[in-house]
Amino acid sequence: MSDHLDCQQLLSSISDFVDGELNPELCRQIEQHLNECENCRIVINTLRKTIDLYQHQPGNQGLPLEIRQRLFHRLHLEEFLNHDPG
């Protein structure tokens, strides 16, 4: 592989790059390209931010009670509804 990476090559490796799954040589080439290319810097930063926003969605609180009730009825496990779901 040539020492100089173009934007297209960077894009093909961008996902592995943000996951830290690329070999050190390719990482070095990407970082070198990023130093010189503002567009690719924006793409990589907004890609990271996109993943980050999705990963930090607020978790909800437990299974809604009515859904648990209907589930237990459907499975014919009604007699265990009063057990503490924990």
């Binding site: 909800n60 437990g62 299974l63 859904i67 648990r68 589930l71 237990f72 499975l75 496990l77 007699e79 265990f80 057990h83 779901p85 924990g86």
Partner: peptide, 18 residues
């Protein structure tokens, strides 16, 4: 075993629903 099945449902239902 129905008691054990109910425990399994309670253990995994929230994750599966989400």
């Amino acid at each position: 075993d129905r008691h054990e099945l109910a425990r399994m449902v309670d253990l995994y239902s929230e994750k599966i629903y989400k």
